[in-house]
Write a protein that binds this DNA or RNA. Sequence first.
RNA 1: GGCCUGUUAGUCAAGUGGCUAAGACGCCGCCCUCUCACGGCGGAGGCAGGGGUUCGACUCCCCUACGGGUCACCA
Length: 545
Amino acid sequence: MDYRYLAELLYPDVKHDYEYYESLYPVRNLPEGAKVTRIAPSPTGYVHFGSIFPALVSERLARQSGGVFYLRIEDTDEKRKVKGAIEDIIKSFDYFGINFDEGVTLKEQKGNYEPYIQSQRVEIYHTFAKKLVSEGKAFPCFCSEETIENDKQLQAKNKEMIGYYGKYAHCINLTCNEIEKKIKDGKKFVLRFLPDEVTKNNVTVTDLIRGAVTITDDNTGRILIKSDGVPTYHFAHAVDDHLMRTTHVVRGEEWLSSVIFNMQLFLALGFKPPKYMHISTLMTIDGVRKKKLSKRDKGSGLKEYIKNGYAAESVVEYVLTLLNSNYEDWRRANPELHWSEFSFSIKKMGSSGSLFDFAKLNDVSKNVISNMTALDVYNRLIAWASKFDKEFYEKLSYDKEYAIVVLSIGRGGPKSRKDFAVWSELRHYMSFFYDNWFEITDKINEKFSSADIIAALKKFASCYNENDTQDIWFGKIKDIAASLNYCPDMKLYKQNPEAYQGNVGDISMFIRVAVTGRINSPDLYTVMQVLGKERVIVRLKSYCI
RNA sequence: GGCCUGUUAGUCAAGUGGCUAAGACGCCGCCCUCUCACGGCGGAGGCAGGGGUUCGACUCCCCUACGGGUCACCA
């Protein structure tokens, strides 16, 4: 068999020798130890929450080592392409502060290794496919889908390995003439891989997270180039990551079992394989069972988190705690630092899949937000509201200073309040600070007589002075309490609750409900200061009507 | 089903032959306190099961059970 002739027959349009591309995309000039990583999503829909894991790991590895992190779009499946998906990918990662040194952007592609979109690289793939054919390492296959399907059924029935090999590799012995004739007849073909050696042995490969992993040798004649001339994932991966000089491939564990095939391909192409890291799948709980977090699950889309109002840092922070178990300790020790200051370690990564935990995410998020300044919170909140809550946005932008004052309540210092985890909760939290949103939503327990309530409110209304210090302010409440036989001292009250109608806390509660509409609120004194005397009095009086 | 891979409290997890088995979230209680939140203190709760190896196993080996992955002209 004249492989060179065959290669020419199969890929007559290839213009360049593969060496052309080797020199067009030279080895990167980077310091020793610098890692080149990428994420390579396919534009088949919205970005999955799980995508942020490999993205973050890749980003950290590259940035921490002075390397390069880039975005490549793997759009080799025409059928599954979704319009707008690329834009969605870029915007989603941007929201979470994950930026790329090279690759696809909203405007153009940047970097010296372009194109970074696989559908624009077909000629490159064909060049290397041609090389493989000319070396007898790949061959064309003209089998119909029915043939393949029948073989598969038979193999399944006989409990044989499924694939295109041995007696099932019908096209492997086609002569050059036969192939030439089929091509002249306009027959489509796929290009299949013929492994160098068919060993059928178990091979041990190294995964940076899992260590030595044993995988069975792959010799199933897998497809390299589909009949439409576009490569499959594995072939594109080998060519691209070699030519783009990727050093570390970080991907989900669903790829683990194909590492061996990847290795074979790199070897056959004469490439040095990258190092692999397979991240365990994020799980979710379905009733009592753990299962892979899939696109159908609630909380699987990155966009949902944006829409619900999770701060970018909250999500990153949470993911980092899952990725590196010592992250939380570091965060406690360094509350002021940005997450990128953390020194990320591959060694600290676990190899079993973790379960997504909303409670934990929310806790992390509350901490993140409690560490922000009021201005910070305001800026992010309004950015969120401008997209997802127009009415709220209007209020926030109408009086920025006021909103910031409201957001300042209980903020700052080591005991900063932790009232909310997502921006969408702020609307309710802040609502009573706006007159047309204010409403009494909580009821005062019926055990208190309305006469007492009214009396307390009226007394307070008549003596409230917004220039009072907090001590004087509270002293007045205590006086009111005493006058109504509500114990002004909590400790005394607890010793003998029967002796009183209630306590000073109850009086405060009456006032709180009248002023805020709620049983619970941040510090009442401060709330009143923010609302201003006029509104406080109006609310106190209107409650009495 | 074959092959691969994993299993420390409800969840995330330290831990690499010798400790009363860290910590965080959640839960419960107490304290602080005008409520809530915060903070402080305390509590319940765990090495999947069975065999080995060893003076000694959460740690090493085997088996079982139970998760997860993969077996496409999808990535």
